[in-house]
Design a binder for these strands. Structure first.
Lengths: 205, 205
DNA sequence: AAAAACAAACTGAAGTTTCAGTCACGTTAG
DNA sequence: CTAACGTGACTGAAACTTCAGTTTGTTTTT
């Protein structure tokens, strides 16, 4: 897709950065360590990314693009919006290296954004997008009858996505097990959208 | 209580540390800046706390103890457990310097704990305590009829406290307004515990 | 009660480490 | 040839830590 603008070597560095951020955090990432992890020289990192800030910026974009790519299920959202939503949300809580890498990086960026307004803007946009996607799915679920009509779609979307951020951080810091986090999220979905009707496509009237 | 083990000057330093962590983050805290903020010499910080890690450790304890002190309302929890719970939870989302300082510091420590197992243990304990307190209040609310009998107290407590952590971070990073965050939390409480009966003390039967 | 001895608290400049960023110089592809 | 790619030793500033010495307060001695 953007294969033209990012060379092999750059990709190598970005992947290493994502890996290292998951291991040491945004603030714990050392350029020299990154170079070693990627198997390139320190100079090359600066050659391609200018400075540390540029590297972080690109890494952030890289992580988001990668997440978008693998989050997107091949199923049609409008076919089973509630199922799609559940899948989308539960996706963030998985014992998969790439997902954990992403979650950790997101958590780091969120924590960092509290002190650096620049990052804040990007974070707000990405978050708003995520909330909107969820709200859209909830509205769709209401139309198919898989969510109660009285449900406040935007509020539910905000609460559920926020909850995931909290669960993700608790999980990654060892405060809850993965299984428990997933259970809690499923419980929250039921409480927000109401129980799933026995016949999925049945209309509530 | 531990007035004997912490001197005036140490307290001064810890207070300054809490203030600075809220302003610059755990990783952004500079020992020299801390000394200036506290109005003491750099050497004294090391004299009392050994090294940077020791300082962080003690600061974390200090913040927890202070939070516990001011979170405790003078009202009797068993008189109106649901009201007490709401107050306790909403307390974390307030436009008050000391609360913001604490929330920011908590967020920082949570984010840091993902990469430093030492802090992780303490964080787990503090979190577990908080969840337990909330669960206890929910159980009490069920007895007074202010929460549905079918409510899963522990699950609700875990979800609500986790949600607050998420809301707090979104608020502090500017992703949601304070008013919206409070609304979302109130909404979550209703969805978890059910609507508050018109007559508060009335038993559901 | 004054002086001396001692201990704890405290200072700030000097020493050490860490780390982002640079630079002079090789290598490869078109 | 040349322009892009790539290297790794080096630099300087910022930050952590140490330490020799000062101040302050308490206890013991005469």
């Amino acid at each position: 897709m953007w294969g033209a603008s990012v060379s092999n070597r750059q990709l190598l560095i970005l992947e290493a950065a994502a890996r290292l951020i998951a291991r040491r955090g945004v603030r714990g990432l050392r350029v020299e360590e990154l170079a070693a992890e990627a198997g390139v020289s320190v100079g090359l990192v600066y050659y391609h990314f200018g400075d540390r800030a540029g590297l972080m910026q690109q890494t952030w974009e890289f992580i988001n693009e990668r997440a978008e790519r693998y989050t997107t299920s091949e199923r049609d959202p409008l076919d089973d919006p509630r199922g799609y939503l559940e899948e989308m949300l539960l996706f963030e809580l998985q014992d998969d290296p790439e997902v954990m890498e992403n979650s950790t990086a997101w958590g780091e960026f969120r924590a960092t954004a509290v002190f650096t307004p620049d990052l804040g803007r990007q974070l707000r946009e990405a978050t708003a997008q995520w909330v909107d996607d969820a709200a859209y799915l909830i509205l769709a679920a209401q139309k198919t009858g898989d969510a109660g009509r009285e449900v406040d779609a935007l509020g539910a979307a905000e609460r559920l996505t926020t909850l995931i951020e909290g669960l993700s951080e608790r999980w990654l810091s060892g405060s809850v097990s993965l299984a428990r986090a997933r259970d809690l999220l499923r419980g929250a979905i039921v409480r927000e959208l109401g129980p799933l009707p026995v016949s999925a496509a049945q209309k509530i009237d």
